[in-house]
């Protein structure tokens, strides 16, 4: 899928601004952004629910036109007819996607089984729990074996158990389908995805594969806490050539370093020499979370 300078404005408010990216077949891509960054609007434009103000989306060989039969979409708050049971709903959605009735019911049975809600198939959707609704929502998105599965905040509304289950499910699904999902929780993206697209205020902030971003943006950091205020000492080490940046707050100093091993040796020697009253000394790495905060914060 290729997205070129996608723009959507509501009156004066520009929700999505000149967004371009591409999604490779077989990849799992996370669309990251804070609340209100334009994730849902982007997904709705990609799924054909909203017309972009500007820009184009092409999908495989389809450049201009309807590619809805190749995608499965899970809205942020999946809704169902409360008077239908799970099975009927899946068959209905399957038939709308162009399957025959028999094909739709075989698929529906398969999916209910695979998503672990086989017993609930005969129950009215009105009585489902949040996690079950989410599963049914994913099932309806998968019913016609789409080439691309789009999930809008699939885990945000779930409790920790439900969320773990859905994430595990997504790991399974990404073996067979291309997935694009939006989230504001970076940890989830890091866990299941190959690629990350970060957007901020409707604009593309950073895009790349998780490992590439890690390599590029990840830094080693040494965190030192002490019983006394280390502010003055922190400023004195700022111009060391192994140190790239120092952040100090009260009794804790975060030192971003270029070479962890070298810096650790020097810092430990320095601490011993000055007899700093340290309580902890941690060598760590910045996470994508920090990168995200940096992007969102700027």
């Amino acid at each position: 899928m290729e997205v070129r300078s996608l723009t959507k404005s509501f009156g004066k408010h520009v929700a999505v601004n000149d967004l371009s990216f591409s999604i490779e077949k077989g990849h799992c891509v996370a669309l990251l952004g804070a609340n209100g960054a334009g994730k849902t609007t982007t997904l709705e434009m990609l799924s054909g629910l909203q017309q972009p103000t500007n820009g184009s989306v092409s999908f495989g060989d389809v450049h201009k036109g309807d590619y809805r039969e190749y995608i499965g979409y899970l809205p942020q708050h999946p809704v169902f007819f409360p008077w239908m049971n799970g099975m009927e709903y899946l068959v209905f959605m399957g038939e709308l996607s162009g399957l025959s009735k028999t094909k739709a019911s075989t698929r529906a049975n398969e999916l209910l089984e695979r998503l672990g809600i086989a017993d609930a198939g005969k129950r009215k959707v009105g009585g489902y729990s949040g996690g079950m609704k989410q599963r049914l929502g994913i099932a309806q998105a998968l019913i016609h074996e789409p080439k691309l599965l789009m999930l809008d905040e699939p885990v945000s509304a779930l409790d920790p158990v439900g969320r773990r289950e859905i994430l595990e499910l997504m790991k399974l699904l990404k073996e067979t389908t291309t997935i694009l999902f939006s989230t504001h929780i970076l940890h989830d993206a890091e866990e299941v995805c190959d690629d990350v697209i970060m957007i901020h205020k409707g604009k593309l902030a950073i895009t790349g594969s998780v490992s590439e971003l890690r390599r590029k943006h990840q830094e080693d950091v040494i965190i030192i806490s002490a019983e006394a205020n280390l502010g003055a000492w922190a400023r004195s080490i700022e111009d060391w050539n192994t140190v790239s940046k120092v952040k100090s707050t009260h009794n804790t100093v975060e030192i971003y370093v270029k070479n962890a091993a070298e810096a650790r040796r020097q810092l430990l020697a320095e601490i011993a020499e000055r007899q700093l009253p340290i309580t902890s000394f941690t060598v760590a790495q910045t996470s994508l979370e920090d990168l995200f905060m940096e992007v969102v914060g700027k």
Binding site: R68, E69, I71, P75, V79, M93, G98, Q140
Partner: peptide, 13 residues
Amino acid sequence: KSGMTKAILVKPV
């Protein structure tokens, strides 16, 4: 209002 229209229109309908 419930969003059902969206759920239906995202299918090739």
